[in-house]
Design a protein around this nucleic acid. Structure first.
Length: 296
DNA sequence: GGGCAGGTCTAAG
DNA sequence: CTTAGACCTGCC
């Protein structure tokens, strides 16, 4: 893996030799909800109580509104720079369908996000639409999160802490448009704030065990638990099956009306330790091609 | 305007 | 253990 070269200028961090990194692919493959495309084609996002802007030109990545220290402590890990995506692609490409899927989402990376934010975000995502999910998360952050600051004339707020959300009434939470999920958010907040469960330590558990633990949260089922593990706990053998992945699996690999449980075990067996990456490529592929869905 | 959306819960076989 | 139905709500 070719090493990246990090330098800085003002409040920009500049990274050379960046490969396997396409902002469109990364921010639009279903893993995150707080990144927005800007008029200049760059992306601005909030993560780890910071606002950062990302712009790629050829193999040079510009990170604005940050510094080298934060890059080394936070963003290197967040953007998964220590993972060799060439190696992963090479492995997955042994499968013909995957090889094709990777051609579409070749710049995908799995972000390493905060477990608490990921837990609540994906609880909100269930039986919901992307637009509304994003709106709800933004609203929750504006109402209950700490003000980070102003960036390019816009105020940004951190994702609210469990300690804060545990004391917000459900009907109040519903003002953020989360609907019946307000109850799940409230309950999860209490569990986490009062340390009845330690989600920050959960990545040390086996995938199977972590899944079981996560599903103790109301509103967390098999799909959401795997999203949380994959996107915030380094569980790359997690394989969340949403409608898109279900469709693409049925289209290429399995008979119609296969059970989700069987689909899951089939995938993990097939793609092994890289199942999570496979899921991301497949998800992006399915949505790009609108696979399995009648015309739009 | 009824149906759907990055599923989950619940009650019932 | 497997399977229908209900479910907030905003957008198509």
């Amino acid at each position: 893996m070719k090493e990246i070269i990090v330098s800085s200028s003002g409040d920009k961090v500049i990274i050379h030799n960046v490969k396997n990194f396409v902002p469109e692919h990364i921010f639009d493959c279903g893993q995150c909800f707080r990144w927005n495309k800007q008029p200049d084609g760059s992306y601005t996002g909030v993560a780890h109580s910071r606002v950062i802007n990302v712009k790629l030109e050829d193999d040079v990545l510009y990170l604005d509104n940050t510094n080298v220290e934060d890059f080394n402590n936070i963003w290197r890990e967040y953007f998964d720079f220590d993972t060799d995506y060439d190696e992963i692609k090479k492995d997955l490409s042994k499968d013909k369908v995957m090889s094709e899927a990777i051609k579409h989402g070749y710049g995908i990376r799995i972000l390493n996000q905060d477990p608490w934010e990921t837990l609540i975000s994906f609880i909100i995502s269930a039986n919901n639409g992307i637009k509304r999910i994003q709106g709800s998360i933004e609203s929750l952050s504006e109402r209950y999160g700490e003000l980070i600051g102003t960036y390019r004339d816009k105020k940004y707020y951190a994702f609210p802490k469990a300690e804060v959300l545990q004391s917000i009434r459900e009907e109040e939470l519903m003002k953020s448009g989360v609907g019946y999920r307000a109850n799940y958010i409230f309950n999860s907040s209490i569990i986490v704030a009062q340390k009845q469960m330690n989600i920050d330590n959960m990545e040390n558990l086996s995938t199977e065990k972590a899944r079981k633990e996560l599903m103790l949260f109301a509103g967390v089922g098999p799909k959401v638990s795997d999203c949380i593990m994959l996107f915030s706990m380094h569980k790359r053998d997690a394989f969340p099956i949403d409608v898109w992945v279900k469709r693409v699996m049925e289209h290429f690999y399995m008979p119609q009306k296969s059970k989700l449980k069987d689909m899951q075990s089939y995938s993990v067996e097939k793609f092994g330790a890289n199942a999570g990456f496979a899921q991301q490529y497949l998800f992006y592929y399915a949505r790009e091609l609108n696979i399995g869905k009648k015309k739009k």
